[in-house]
Nucleic acid binder design. Structure first.
Lengths: 396, 396
DNA sequence: TCTACTTTCTCCACCATCAGGACAAAGATG
DNA sequence: CATCTTTGTCCTGATGGTGGAGAAAGTAGA
């Protein structure tokens, strides 16, 4: 079961592997244009990579006016596993070396059931994907979990919404089970990396990925690399105060952003509105299901319900308030809004934009796009795969 | 006049120069312990550095149990100029290669008089220092200005409190005048670097330096390097909103932090208190000077005036509110409070600490020191000198 | 079809870098 | 005075890397 995937022997090889990952199959000549190596050196390094089996020859490239060059690509048998553990769901996907998704499964699952149950589930999903024929084994796996992680060890630390996960050796345990290297990170960070690799944040070096879902978190990318902070809790913006002496929050404080616009806060507000008869739509949904969730608000808003739209607008304004502060502080080149916000996307985006453009200084907002994520639920799994590929494609 | 200072030829040499700068004179053997080079290679690189004149031999080191090693130090004739242009003052200092201050001058000066007048003054101060014998010429100069800077070009961009500075080619102009390389940065960034080099932030990789003075700004250090953001405006926290629909601010918005606790806001609040007869101390000072400044509040607070103390406490609480948000987001390993806050230091610090420790999550605050800067007004000039030394001590 | 030109790739000679061993110099220890 | 440790230098061999020559494989035009 254990798969001993080769590793690049030096920085040049690592560089080439990443170029092939990010740019797809490429000719030797074109690779030569992108790296500052002599022809001879390049040939040597490529030969070595061919020997290790990490890359393979792939026919002839189109002529650029002379002799045709040989194409090179990453080994087509390489497989990465991307796992995105959300608060209420698990996403598992298999990608090839270019991080294209070959198979993707989603299942609802409450993260509070604990690491053992969750990983049993996740491993079953991975096995199912493998059985479907998209992969024979995995060369690396990336895992995103909804809480802070001590990154070098791959261990969750003091996760507020994940009782029972504190200190669980995710990396080690899964590495055992899967027989391949495993990297673990906060789910927001891997989503940010996903959007960076294949989504709206390509070619942006400093940006924020704000995820609005059950919780509210933020991936911070500095110079193209995820910034994790001293304890791995950077980007934990859900408990920034938006109202002095405001609503009590589960964290023990008052007035936190999540107390107003987290998944459960939104659901509660909606239920109140339904009970008080302010919204027929929401009331109908409440009767149907017995309780309301964030997605009910999204559905009602899409259907034009005024109260639901107001809830989203108000939440967007509050989120925008926080983001405005972060924009002033961080001066990013892009802000991406993501998470389980499909549907309520544009109303939310408009509210956030209004607030940020009004509150932050012109120099910081002047050329600042605020956009929705492009990848939706695949952002996480692609980012997870990328995390592990970054590790694999670095000198041993 | 132009001084052609040599530059290191490669990364090894740059590394050695920085070790000598940060650790002072050192023996060849000890340097060898700190870098991963073979003895032969090390000897070659040191010989080359000796040839360029950047370092000189400095006698014999103490024995470590065997043959005594030869000491090496940075050329004692190297001189850096550090200039810290504040909103209301200019600091100019000369340092040696180890960034020890050899001479330091301060003069009041309103930055609004424009770059020409300000630099005339600064150059006169530099000339005075040179005349006093501490330097014959400068090998590099670092300039801090109170506003955002497009760092690679060394040009202020859209500085709010510095009309007339927008686009002024500071780097080029001063490089001409001084005949040496010049680096320009935001003054908060250089103060952060100063505390990092010689103050409380030694050995911390990720930290925030919050400067409270005429304006309120924040230096952001990520992985030991200053983070400047996409437009060089990162750390501009003075205009983060602390009160919805709050006081109008000079920036055009409402409720900004600076509208409550910037230098002029503090002065105005104090004047109001004096006029309304709430504080005899402040009233007396107002009678004396005709107007009040932030330092009057500091003085009154030191003398025990209750109103002044309240003003500082309230400002500290508001600042703490903002910092709490930044701590959640950035998860720094240290927060340094600096600026012209001498005197009101501990009251302020207590208020900030209370607020941050109450509002931020335990994981982020658990091991987070919040301390006053160690260097006071020399932080800026040392940081400025360090900025230019970083540039000079990098491969050409 | 033939010639001239371009691009790609390999081979090779040559240079620079660097590690590590041998050894000498200089001092500590007893 | 003998032995051990540390430091510094010299030398050799290995490795890494550059760039030229030239073959291979193609295009373009006459």
């Amino acid at each position: 079961m254990r798969r001993m995937t080769a590793r690049p022997a030096n920085a040049h090889q690592a560089r080439l592997l990443r170029l092939l990952r990010d740019g797809g199959p490429n000719s030797r000549a074109q690779l030569g244009d992108q790296v500052e190596l002599s022809r001879s050196k390049l040939a040597v390094e490529i030969d070595r990579l061919l020997q290790t089996g990490l890359v393979v020859a792939d026919g002839l490239a189109a002529s650029r006016g002379g002799r045709r060059s040989h194409n090179i690509r990453l080994a087509p048998s390489l497989r990465f596993l991307g796992v995105d553990i959300g608060a209420t769901s698990i996403d598992v996907a298999v990608t090839n070396a270019e991080l294209e998704v070959l198979g993707h499964l989603t299942q609802p699952m409450d993260v509070r059931e604990g690491p053992v149950a969750v990983f049993e589930q996740a491993l079953a999903m991975a096995a199912k994907l493998r059985a479907s024929g998209v992969a024979e084994g995995f060369d690396g796996a990336g895992i995103g979990v909804p809480g802070p992680v001590r990154f070098p060890e791959g261990v969750p630390v003091a996760p507020p919404i994940m009782p029972g996960w504190d200190g669980f050796p995710v990396r080690e345990a899964l590495s055992q089970e899967l027989g391949c290297p495993v990297m673990v990170d906060n789910d927001v960070n891997i989503m940010a990396q996903g959007e960076q690799h294949a989504g709206v944040a390509r070619a942006v070096r400093d940006f924020l990925y704000v995820k609005i879902g059950t919780g509210i978190g933020c991936g911070v990318v500095v110079g193209g690399e995820v910034y994790r902070g001293t304890n791995g809790s950077a980007g934990d913006i859900g408990h920034i105060q938006v109202e002095v002496d405001g609503r009590p929050c589960a964290c023990g404080n008052r007035g936190c952003l999540e107390a107003y616009f987290g998944g459960s806060a939104l659901a509660r507000d909606a239920e109140n509105a339904a009970r008080e008869g302010r919204s027929a739509q929401l009331a109908a949904r409440l009767d149907e299901g017995g309780e309301l969730a964030a997605r009910d608000v999204a559905a009602a808003a899409t259907a034009g319900d005024a109260v639901a739209l107001d809830l989203i607008r108000e939440g967007g304004t509050r989120t925008g308030q926080v983001i405005a502060g972060l924009v002033s502080f961080f001066n990013p080149g892009l802000v991406v809004i993501g998470g389980g916000v499909t549907g309520l996307g544009h109303t939310l985006l408009a509210a956030i934009r209004t607030q940020v453009y009004r509150q932050s200084l012109p120099l910081a907002t002047g050329n600042l796009p605020i956009v929705l994520g492009e990848l939706g639920p695949t952002a996480g799994v692609i980012g997870a795969a990328r995390l592990t590929s970054d590790h694999l494609f670095s000198p041993a």
